[in-house]
């Protein structure tokens, strides 16, 4: 099994090389003199006055946090799902309790307005 992951790592290297190569080729074919105006960030004709990476709305951060909670939960669900038929009724009850705890969390988020997007 380890060999097939080694092969995947190899493929990642090959394809990254390919991607970098095609950019390099294009750099030689498509070279034009750089002008100062050309290198300005695009902003509908205005000259940008400040750095674009200022403060950003907190809601994006909140979505990230929520995603991590639910994604980790799903990571726990995967092994459960694969052997579900072996576990039988025990697995169902156990996962039911796990999901119920998360449901309380979900309802709490909902009530606190964590999913509101203005």
């Amino acid at each position: 099994m380890f060999e097939s992951y080694l092969a995947l790592a190899l493929l990642i290297i090959i394809v990254t090389g390919f991607g970098a190569g095609i950019i390099l080729v294009s750099k030689f074919i498509g070279r034009r003199p750089p002008l100062r105006e050309k290198l300005l960030p695009y902003e509908c004709g205005n000259i940008p006055e400040e750095d674009a990476r200022g403060r950003f709305p907190i809601k994006f951060y909140l979505v990230g946090i929520l995603f991590i909670i639910f994604d980790i939960e799903i990571a726990f669900l995967f092994p459960w799902a694969v052997i579900y038929k072996e576990l039988g009724i025990f697995g169902l009850i156990e996962m039911g309790i796990f999901l119920a705890i998360l449901l309380i969390g979900y309802l709490y988020i909902l009530k606190k307005g964590g999913l509101k997007w203005e």
Binding site: P41, Y42, E43, D51, R53, F56, F60, V63, F67
Partner: peptide, 19 residues
Amino acid sequence: SNNKFSVLGGFRSAAQIIS
């Protein structure tokens, strides 16, 4: 990209895809 549209677009893409 350091462009206002890009930064906002990147955030929106990320928020949407992970949701």
